[in-house]
Design a binder for these strands. Structure first.
Lengths: 355, 355
DNA sequence: TTGTATGCGTTATCAT
DNA sequence: ATGATAACGCATACAA
């Protein structure tokens, strides 16, 4: 049941009861037309020094504050961009959003955020809400979205970027890197070290194309070298430290003699868990077991013996996404696909296998 | 110099060239008045089943999307709330924002975020921008803000909450906990363990009243027990792991015989750094040195030997802030001050001093 | 360079 | 329960 059909109307937020001071008030006080006042605020260079200062003074004394809704309605521009990310709980996304927000702000845009919980249907709902809100550009994570979402953005003519990805066949604008290739490199590094028995603790692939791509990259590299990732040596699990610990136990089960010598984790959180659990199991990292992660979060370089991982420039991607979007919105030249550099950071958690 | 006085006008985002379908189009197709169509969308219960379904069908076939700007202008309600946080880079804030966003969304509001970089002047600018954007409620971190900001919110009649704080004299609505008291408890715990020689690695107090309050709490507890925090045993440093390591070296300098037996860190990141550095220095935690943090981030429970810290319910605070704000906006009853529980989580990083 | 007049898409008031 | 119509506050043709 709904709360009651007689819904109470909410009060209109307003100090005391004084009406909002509007642009025409400012114009009146300054003794100019509203049009001129508007120009002073939006294109000051197009108005004479004299009037300009009168208007600015009037605005100041009246404490005038623009009404973005009216501006948006009249100009058909909201000066707002949107982002829907899986969650802000993962620091790597949070920093990405931070980069997006700061750059967008520098360029005069505000950011509206929403989260999808790694679910394409929720992502669609959230994006729709943002579109209603009049966002002029949209940042999404990954490339796997609800088909209706692409359609929606297209018919509304709203530019978007898929971030964290940059795959060969990308038909959509993107800013990121090739997760398959990055995972392949990471794996090859281990292969080059001499490892032949592998395990992988992957993130959940459903609703997360980056996680899936990383698995693909690992498998590809292994296969290319004729190395198998055995059934029990692969586990898919949500990102988290606890999960990494459980994951390690799972993939290391069985005869110690045939135990993997290297474990590849879907991200750093899982890798931290794996390292902690290895220690708890009395295993030496990297002596008994090499561990690699993905993301290069702040802790990775400090956690002993240091985590070998793939560095992902999340803030940079956020900033590039903002630039791409704003450039598109403002009809400035853009690159349709932008690649950022991920780089392998070798630290103490990896070494050649024993023997 | 500005880009050139002849600024190019941006294109109006719109698919192909087809005009946006508006409510009157929907109404026309459904054969009803715009007023009725509007009602169907906003208060469906106030309209007959018959017309309601006609309108809904029409909206669906036309792919109608509401225009929030027009809605906001006409209704004087933006259904948007704002948050300005120091940075999203700190996971504890990111999760707080996540809680705020999710609850706000559940209640039909969108979230616009901005960041202040721990600077009150930037916070003021950002908040002003949000106010222009028509936010109906604002979440801020801490209690220390530019006086003009309080004035602005008051004259505009926009409700706000200070989060992460709940201090005795709070004249403003807040949702959080008493940082002084929490730090005092943390310190007393160490005191009760028998520690008498302390060090503190604090966050930067300037622009961060929470950091300052934590220092105050530590000092108060120490003083109450007649224990001194010596000059060289206190350092103020930005939050970060690297900084925690440097900080530890700094506060542990000097004669090992009079070295502190316990170090209190301003947050978990600093504490992690301190623990890593202690290990690097050959010090056993907690044998030679007890370490405590603040926040209880995901890693705290996993990092060996486990970090004793003060658990801060950041997601919960975000959700409560959203509820408070939305309730205020919608004229529902609210508690002006809401306290959340922080609790001491004792783990392996603390023990009585040797001897 | 400045002013006049119109419209942006929706909600709300007041009738019916 | 439904419809006609007037705001909402601002930007922008277009005219001067």
């Amino acid at each position: 049941m709904e709360p009651k059909s007689t819904r109470k109307r909410f009060h209109v937020a307003q100090g005391a009861g004084e009406k909002q001071v509007k642009l025409s008030d400012v114009a009146a006080l300054a003794g100019v037309s509203p049009a001129t006042a508007s120009r002073v605020l939006n294109r000051p260079e197009k108005v004479g020094r004299e009037m300009r200062e009168r208007v600015q003074a009037a605005a100041a004394t009246l404490g005038y504050v623009r009404d973005a809704a009216a501006r948006a309605l009249a100009s058909r521009r909201s000066r707002t961009i949107g982002a829907v990310v899986p969650t802000l709980d993962n620091p790597i996304f949070a920093t990405g959003v931070q980069g997006l927000e700061s750059r967008a702000n520098e360029r005069g845009y505000s950011l509206v955020v929403a989260s999808s919980d790694y679910r394409v249907d929720k992502e669609l709902r959230q994006a729709t809400m943002l579109l209603e809100r009049g966002i002029e550009g949209l940042m999404l994570m990954g490339t796997e979205h609800h088909p209706s979402l692409y359609a929606l953005m297209k018919t509304r003519g709203v530019p978007h970027v898929n971030s964290w990805v940059n795959e060969g066949d990308a038909e959509h604008p993107c800013i990121g890197f090739d997760n398959v290739e990055a995972a392949t490199r990471l794996t090859n590094y281990l292969l080059d070290l001499g490892h032949r028995r592998f395990a992988m603790i992957a993130g959940v692939a459903k609703g997360n194309d980056r996680a899936a791509a990383r698995v693909e990259g690992v498998r590809a590299a292994l296969t290319a070298d004729g190395v198998a990732l055995e059934e029990g040596r692969f586990i898919e699990i949500p990102y988290g430290v606890r999960e990494g610990r459980d994951g390690l136990r799972a993939v290391l089960a069985g005869d110690p003699a045939t135990r993997p010598t290297a474990v590849i984790c879907g991200n750093d959180l899982l890798a931290f868990g794996a390292m902690f659990e290895a220690a708890a199991m009395g295993l030496d990292v990297p002596g008994d077991l090499s561990v690699v992660g993905f993301d290069d979060t702040e802790l990775s370089s400090h956690i002993p013996p240091g985590l070998t991982t793939m560095h992902v420039p999340s803030v940079e991607m956020g900033k590039l996404a903002a630039d791409y979007l704003v450039n598109r919105i403002e009809d400035q030249p853009v690159r349709h696909r932008t690649r950022v550099e991920v780089r392998l950071v070798v630290r103490g958690s990896t070494a050649p296998p024993r023997g």
